[in-house]
Every structure is written in C-alpha cells, then in structure tokens.
C-alpha cells in the first residue's frame, strides 16, 4: 500500500513532461477513446516483435517451401522442378533411413520415456524428499545434448569406462559399442536418460494439481492403487499428457547435436549415415561441403519434417481430446 502512494503522485508529473499528458486526459474523458488509444499502442507494442518474427521466422519458412520446389546450389540460377525433389527424396535410401531414425526417436524413445516418467511421477508424488529429487532430475534438461554425446563417447570407448567396469565381471570380449550399427541404439538410450527427468517434472506439475481429498475419497471407498490410478490420476492429468506428447513430437524432430557429436567423434566429422536423423540429413545435404550443395533437396527434407510435426500434432490433439475436467 505504501508503495502505491508515491507512484500516484509521480505519475502526473512524469507524464506532464512527456507527450503523455493529452493522452492521459483523453483516457479520463471516456472509455471509448481509451479503447481507440489503446489500439494505437498496438504498433509500438506488438510491431517490433512481429517484425522480427516475420523477417527471421515466417519469411524463411515461406522461402523454404519455395526453395524445396527448385533445384538450387545456393548461388546461381534456380530451376523450378516441381515435386521432383520430394519424389527423389523418397527414393533416396539415406533419407529414408534418416526419416526412419527420426520416427524411432519419436516413438520408441517417446514411449519408453513416458512410461518411465509416469512411473517416476507416481513414486515421486508422495515420497519424502520429493522436492530435492525433482530439482535434481530436472537439471539434465538444461545441459546441451553435446555434453552427453561427448560423455557417451568416453564411456563406450574401447578402452572406456564401460569396458573397464565389465572386465572384472568376466566380460573379456565386450561388444563394439561404437561400431556404426550400435551407435543409434546408444543414442536412443542416451536421449531417454536425458529427457525423462524433464517430462517427469511436467507430469508432476499436473499430478500436483489434484486436490488431496480425491485420494482421501479413494481410501474411504477402498480403492486399490490401480483403481486410484485409473479413475483419479489418469483422467485428471490427461491434458498434461497431451501437452507432453505434443512437446516431445516437436522437439524430437529437430534432434541434431547429439547425433552430430556422437558420430562425429568417431570419424571424418560427419556421423555415419546409420545414425542420421531428419535434421542431420538437412544440414549434411546442404552444408557438408563434400558434394555440390543441394539446397532444394535439403529444404524439401526439412519441409517433410515440418509436415510430419503438423500431422502428428493434429492427430495427437484429436486422439487426446477429452472433455476437460474442472477441479
């Protein structure tokens, strides 16, 4: 309260010096001009943000669609080729592999991670020390995926930590962890480890909103743990699940760093093609510097990722749609 008083007295003095005075007067006159005047503020308030967004996000997105219909090496003339970049992509084994890998990340890592995250949420819900546990498992999400790529490289090195640990257990002939065919499963494992904590925290936020008297009702009605899960926790956190699914779809399609450093550390700088994801395909096709850059094909592959995200998000929203339960 005491804070408000000086602010009031400062206000007219301040606006007296600036051009604000006539505006302020109008505001007092009538509600109608207040609205009109607020509308005038739209340009200074929203304009700059919109400008940056349009120029550096929307126009590039539109340009990407345009480039994907052309054959273009980055400089020189563009040739309109219609859909042939797209048809060529679906005949390209490399791209099919990359798309398949992206889907594997999305679905397999997604499902495993959700099961783990939900299980962890149920355990965490009423555990002693839940706050500290929750803070700790959230932190890995803030760290660059590159770090995990480097660490995994160290752990699974032929002379690395994992093999050192296996030796006393009698494993004298450990698998070639970093062989090209084993890399992708390792990447999936690392990603699951990295992301589970984050999604656990989001689910926790949903579960925490459930008022405790629901559980008390359950106990009174003699519900067992499974019934409590089925009839209280799941229905009341359903919308949070939907949000998580959308979030994971969006973020899994752009996974790049971890693949890049995982494979890049074991070879010529470009990861082995068995591990490529859609984002790696786009980058490598355009910027690897090994062959003539094919910007058309590269952007077409990116547009396919965009289409994938769009279709999946619409699908998820439709499947997950339920009447929102107010509580």
């Amino acid at each position: 309260m005491s804070l408000k008083a000086p602010e009031r007295s400062v206000d007219p003095v301040d606006s007296g010096g600036a051009s604000g005075t006539p505006k302020a007067k109008k505001g007092r006159d009538s509600g109608g001009s207040m609205v009109a005047q607020r509308r005038k503020l739209m340009i200074p308030f929203v304009g700059p943000a919109l400008l940056f967004y349009l120029v550096l996000f929307i126009i590039p997105t539109g340009a990407a669609v345009w480039i994907s219909f052309n054959k273009w090496a980055g400089s020189g003339p563009m040739t309109w080729v219609g859909f042939s970049n797209y048809t060529a992509l679906f005949k390209d084994d490399l791209f099919k592999q990359a798309l398949w890998n992206t889907l594997l990340l999305l679905v397999v890592v997604g499902v495993v991670m959700f099961v783990l995250a939900f299980a962890m949420t149920l355990v965490l819900r009423d555990m002693a020390g839940r706050k500290i546990a929750r803070s700790i498992i959230f932190f890995p999400h803030l760290i660059n995926a590159l770090v995990y790529g480097v660490l995994a490289g160290f752990l699974f090195n032929p002379g690395g930590l994992v093999n050192t640990l296996l030796k006393p257990l009698g494993v004298t002939d450990p698998p070639q962890w970093l062989a090209q065919d084993n890399l992708f499963p390792l990447i999936m494992l690392t990603l699951t480890f990295m992301t589970t904590g984050y999604y656990t925290t989001i689910l926790m936020a949903g579960v925490d909103r459930i008022p405790p008297y629901y559980y008390e009702d359950c106990a009174m009605a003699g519900a067992n743990a499974w019934q409590r899960l089925r009839y209280v926790i799941l229905p009341l956190t359903w919308d949070v699940f939907g949000v998580c699914a959308v979030l994971w779809t969006i973020s899994s399609v752009k996974i790049f760093e971890i693949v890049w450093v995982f494979g890049g550390s074991s070879g010529s700088g470009i990861p082995p093609t068995q591990t490529w994801t859609a984002a790696v395909y786009t980058y490598a096709t355009a910027f690897s510097g090994e062959s003539l850059p094919a910007y058309g094909a590269a952007t077409a592959s990116a547009i396919i990722s965009l289409a994938l995200v769009t279709v999946l998000v619409v699908l998820i929203r439709r499947v997950m749609r339920r009447d929102v339960i107010e509580f």
């Binding site: 550096l56 996000f57 126009i59 590039p60 997105t61 340009a63 990407a64 480039i67 980055g74 969006i250 399609v253 752009k254 790049f256 859609a278 984002a279 786009t282 980058y283 355009a286 910027f287 910007y295 590269a298 952007t299 990116a302 547009i303 990722s305 965009l306 995200v309 769009t310 998000v313």
Partner: peptide, 13 residues
C-alpha cells in the same frame, strides 16, 4: 511447431 532445420537454409542465404 516449426523445426529449426526448416529455416536453416533460407536464413543462411
């Protein structure tokens, strides 16, 4: 919802 690889090439150009 737009993956960053979509705008990568146009931005570079």
């Amino acid at each position: 919802g737009v993956p960053v690889q979509v705008i990568l090439i146009p931005l570079f150009v």
